[in-house]
Design a protein around this nucleic acid. Structure first.
Lengths: 199, 199
DNA sequence: GCAGCAATGTAGTCGTTGACAACAAAGATG
DNA sequence: CATCTTTGTTGTCAACGACTACATTGCTGC
């Protein structure tokens, strides 16, 4: 009957996986440490060995989320064509997809970045956003974007993409509109850069 | 000693006011119906007469939030100069201010719009966003914005502003950068429109 | 190998919470 | 002024997060 061993052996990763699923399907507020323990088949206090409190679990989820987001952005970047516009479109689409499919997780990631101190989350976030900065630098090198501090130029672009995602998860725009909106934004972004250079 | 009367007489508004304060200062997750009742000086079950459950209170908060947001956007619109760019700047600044000072409330407003059915929230949201649409229409009439469906043109602008606010509340950009970022975004938005018209 | 120690899981408890039911007081209406 | 409705109170329940004490397992140095 395959007696469950006293030591689970893989508890922390399984807790994280189950937690991520719950967060995606039912939101952060529905995540209960005790229910999680039941799902995985351990006692209600077992998770405490790996996460001192609930917030620690949420922070760990956020960190994993940044890692995954970074991978997906990187894959989009690498998988697109050579042109700046293609890459920008691919990365933007990847970000919006992540933000809409894992809206609660992204919220967690942003929220965690506020109160976390140790910097682990910040480091993970920076790795994830590094792709964005690369992209901007490339755009500037190709002359498709106005020169300047990449952080500053990129932030407006980032904000727009993030905002589109927020509008979708907020139910203000339909998912079918996303493509159109992202294309509009990119066109405007690049067009705006051209205009600024011309001025 | 001013014996507290059996009937409070003004419970619902006071609950909402206290709740809004708690949400602003300590976030949504820190909002407890029982603590709220204690703060206002009623028994733990009294709030139930006005809000069937916790979510109902949150929805009411969201509705009030939309009303206030609408007023502030309207005031910014009316208080700015006649020019489109001035008004756009004022409204954008007002939105970002609301979104950063009442980040948790705005989150609540967006979240509530998802699951609420009766449409009360949707109506409140539409009233609040009406100012935005007016602004876009005016920009188009003045030729500062490219023509087209105001909803669609406005959405990209809205998304950008909302995204900037999200970046601030997420701790990714410092509050001091907001002004600069918003100005950048507006310049780009209008410049992008000009470029598109020129193309 | 094996003694002792650190790591990991269990059982029990406490205070708090949201939700609910039964009851009480105050107003409103005829 | 009798009655009905609204609004508040008390009491209870199950679930939760956090904590403590204890049990089991695996690892490391001798």
């Amino acid at each position: 009957m395959a007696e469950r061993p006293y030591h689970h052996g893989n508890l922390r990763p399984e807790l994280l996986a189950a937690a991520e699923r719950t967060v995606r399907e039912r939101g952060v507020q529905a995540l209960s440490l005790r229910e999680l323990a039941r799902d995985v088949g351990v006692s209600h206090a077992a998770p405490r060995r790996h996460f001192p409190d609930r917030q620690a679990l949420l922070d760990a989820l956020a960190e994993a989320g940044f890692a995954r987001l970074g991978e997906e952005l990187r894959a989009a970047f690498d998988g697109a064509g050579e042109g700046f516009e293609d890459r920008l479109g691919a990365v933007a689409a990847a970000y919006v997809r992540f933000a809409t499919e894992d809206a609660a997780l992204l919220e967690l990631m942003f929220a965690g970045k506020k109160h976390e101190e140790s910097g682990v989350l910040h480091a993970a976030a920076e790795r994830a956003f590094a792709v964005m900065l690369e992209l901007i630098a490339e755009g500037q090198a190709q002359g498709a974007l106005q020169p300047g501090d990449p952080e500053r130029v990129g932030l407006v672009l980032f904000a727009t993409i993030q905002g589109i995602a927020a509008l979708v998860t907020g139910g203000i725009v339909a998912p079918e509109q996303v493509r159109e909106l992202v294309d509009d934004a990119i066109e405007r972004f690049i067009g705006g850069s051209h205009a600024a250079r011309a001025a």
